[in-house]
Design a protein around this nucleic acid. Structure first.
Lengths: 218, 218
DNA sequence: TTTGATATGATTGTCCTGCAATCGACAATG
DNA sequence: CATTGTCGATTGCAGGACAATCATATCAAA
């Protein structure tokens, strides 16, 4: 029918509920730009599409709503959230602050293994920058940032960051407004070094500079 | 039966859905300590209590789940979230960062009216501190902090801060672990002044100091 | 005693049907 | 033209039904 076919041969038994799986699928569609901001989402239509009941879809939509990806107007319907300039500014600033905090924490509790992983991720990014594949660069950049978040060992910070990033990605995908095209690799050098050497103040400052540096809104 | 009695004679016609109203009621119960961490929440029982259908309650529970106030284990049930030391540390650090960001933004865009409101809230807090009513002091303290958030004009920051605060309040109420009992008033003086004078760096630093200052975890 | 298998009850997961409430658009009316 | 009423679409919400899963108790076997 719709979802439940993959029994996940790989040991990891899929215990996810259909509700959250449906939310996952829709989230992907929004982030990838298959569903662009403003698109209306009708519960009954989605239910038929995914082969699920309306109640299940409803829960999934509420979930996405709490993540800021879809918007609900009472009795009228759901739609993919549209962002205005204020929203963009909020996402930028919030992301900068969160990433700064993550960099500080990561620097405070950096260990040898963490530093190794961080340097490796950075080298990977640097290598891809030379090749010029924009999609790959973007992914490697995101990986590097997410690794910093992981190294901060702060689950709430991680999930909050993920939320901001998702809203951001949905906007990027829809606006076809590609990431920073140039010199993303070099600008991260100082950040990685600061974290690896445990200099928390510098790490925080560098993280913030890296994000707010390339676009001035408002 | 359960909720919908108040027709809100004061012009403001209640447009909230029963789903979110139910979430509001439960949230209040958790924050006030009527529902302590670990308490099990059964959908059918709640439905009967509030006079609502199970589906409605389900949506409300998922909402509270996304706010971190209740926890769900699949097929087993819901319960009021219990926080461990790591969680407490996460909440403290996240709150400090968010409040620092808010103080910075507030200082950057402070206006005469905002400064007036801020000074007034601070004077109110100071006055209550002399009287010694702990509950009133706590409320005034929360009001002051929330005013700073409001002055930052950052809706996402505001809602994120609210989430952290709610989890925090739920813990406080349950643990009966009262807020900072002493000198809360004086410690905020520098913060208020920095914001009113537009000194964003100092405002951010003071805000962080005020939060992390009174308890060292981990 | 310990382990493992089985039965059982509680609770959620998911589906269904049905209807009321509300919104948006458009026609009718003055 | 402005107002009002109607109508279709969609969500809001209720209630019932059953499967899936978990937690626990129970019993059998080693």
């Amino acid at each position: 029918m719709g979802i439940q076919e993959e029994m996940n041969k790989s040991a990891k038994i899929s215990k996810r509920s259909l509700e959250s799986q449906a939310a996952d699928l829709m989230r992907e569609d929004i982030i990838n730009g298959n569903l662009t901001p403003g698109t209306r989402l009708v519960e009954t239509t989605l239910a038929k599409e995914y082969g699920l009941s309306r109640g299940t879809i409803r829960i999934a939509l509420h979930q996405l709503g709490s993540e800021g990806l879809v918007t609900q107007v009472p009795y009228a319907g759901w739609s993919v959230t549209e962002l205005n300039d204020q929203d963009l500014w909020e996402l930028y600033t919030l992301r900068a602050t969160l990433e700064g905090m993550a960099a500080r924490l990561a620097a405070e509790r950096i260990c040898e293994e963490g530093a190794e992983r961080l340097r490796e991720a950075y080298q990977q990014l640097l290598a891809l920058c030379k090749l010029g594949d924009l999609k790959a660069i973007t992914r490697a950049d995101l990986d590097l940032h997410k690794l910093i978040i992981e190294l901060s060992s702060h689950s709430r910070l991680a999930s909050q960051y993920q939320l901001v990033e998702n809203q951001f990605l949905a906007y990027i995908a829809a606006a076809n407004r590609d990431f920073e095209p140039e010199s993303v690799g070099l600008s991260h050098a100082a950040l990685v070094e600061a974290i690896c050497e445990g200099e928390s103040d510098r790490a925080e400052a560098e993280a913030i500079r890296n994000i707010t540096g390339f676009e001035e809104l408002r």
